[in-house]
Design a protein around this nucleic acid. Structure first.
Lengths: 222, 222
DNA sequence: ATTTTATATTTTGAATTCAATCTTTACTGT
DNA sequence: ACAGTAAAGATTGAATTCAAAATATAAAAT
């Protein structure tokens, strides 16, 4: 399962651009400055433009005829739709993870869980979200399904920016933490059916999604 | 939901290469003849290579350092994994479709269903598979979730070649047809929970998947 | 005759070039 | 001053070019 380092030039460029979008260096709606990025990366326009085509097919940028690439905005609908799909994928992950997860993987998920609880108690949302993210990724990885892992990571990266920027409501946060208790319990019992069910609805709180989207709008992240 | 015709040159080239893979003109494991395709399409290497990078990120080709692109082989594991993910996505589609499908959409799914049954009775597998495919796509489209539609179609295209090449066993075929009766019933009742359940396990017959993969191997399609 | 080595040819990856289109700036007329 | 227009400049899309690497071909040695 070690990822094959493709190490193509355009691939490297794509990674760096994705990171810049994630970090907010490149903002949604803005034009991608080809020349500037070429200089910054020390490459010609050829590999940069190849990277842009790939990023366009992944949804990170949009290509406008004769006016280059723009960083995609994330609409409320697309956010909603993406989270719905991620929920379904996490549901499947839960079922598969229960069948495949090793003791050591389980132990590290548990460790992350307790870390996350500590952050919750201290109301440290940034660290909470990070630990939370890692738990979900660990479960997806434990599915041992490479296609699933790949698709999930791609979708996750598309919405990460918004998810990390917004603040959770008190109620939603409490509910999410309770869900996580149930997640760990089901995982320990290798109860795939239950874990699948929990994960399928864990992300999909529509009210919270709208709220997230509004926050993002306000911060013009989308 | 009309697809935005991006109509970029590299996009057109990508479509044509995907179709050639689908049609068997380009065979798994073989090298992609850049020069020849350029002449055939009447474009320079620049847009062709851009298309190849996109196809690589979608999994249709693999890029080997200093030796260009090869058409990807579909391993048994990848086929299995892809069908698992598609099942999960169809499950979600079922739930959403029940909430969103219009009467006219339902009518056209029903029409396809009866067509498909006729092909089954005549043991016309090729036409059966085509109608079957259309039904599943119609349900996915009825979900009204653009991200879902997009991811599903992408995965479907990756495995279509193999799925259409192999023959179904008598038992599996009968079971699939029975599933389809239940699918239509649930859809008519707008019973999303049931439809979701059926669709989540409809594709995932592991024995059949192995069989499919073997057939594909024998025909060296994968 | 078969393997090895050397040379020629092709293919690849990435930079460069060039025409077409877009954007900005400067100018004109009201 | 301001709207409209023309010219200059910048950016884009795609073809071309060029060095490096891989493959094929031919010659030499065992």
């Amino acid at each position: 399962m070690d990822k094959i380092k493709q190490n193509t030039l355009h691939g490297e460029v794509a990674v760096r651009i994705r990171d810049m979008i994630d970090a907010g260096t490149l903002t949604p709606g803005s034009r991608v400055p080809e020349k500037q990025l070429c200089e910054q990366f020390g490459v010609s326009r050829t590999p940069l433009r190849e990277a842009l085509k790939v990023l366009a097919s992944e949804g990170f940028v949009e290509l406008l005829p004769n006016r280059g690439a723009r960083i995609s905005k994330l609409t409320i609908d697309t956010l909603q739709h993406t989270l719905e799909v991620m929920s379904a994928l996490e549901g499947l992950s839960g079922e598969l993870a229960c069948a495949h997860i090793s003791e050591s993987e389980l132990a590290s998920v548990e460790a992350l869980h307790y870390q996350m609880l500590a952050y919750y108690k201290n109301a440290n949302m940034a660290e909470y979200l990070l630990a939370n993210q890692k738990i979900h990724e660990a479960i997806v990885v434990a599915s041992r399904n490479d296609v699933l892992i790949d698709v999930y990571k791609n979708l996750n990266q598309r919405v990460r920016r918004v998810r990390f920027s917004a603040e959770l409501s008190k109620e939603y946060w409490a509910k999410a933490v309770q869900d996580h208790e149930d997640i760990i319990t089901a995982l320990r019992r290798r109860d795939g059916v239950t874990l699948g069910q929990i994960l399928r609805r864990h992300l999909s709180d529509k009210v919270e999604v709208s709220y997230l989207a509004e926050m993002a709008e306000a911060k013009s992240l989308s």
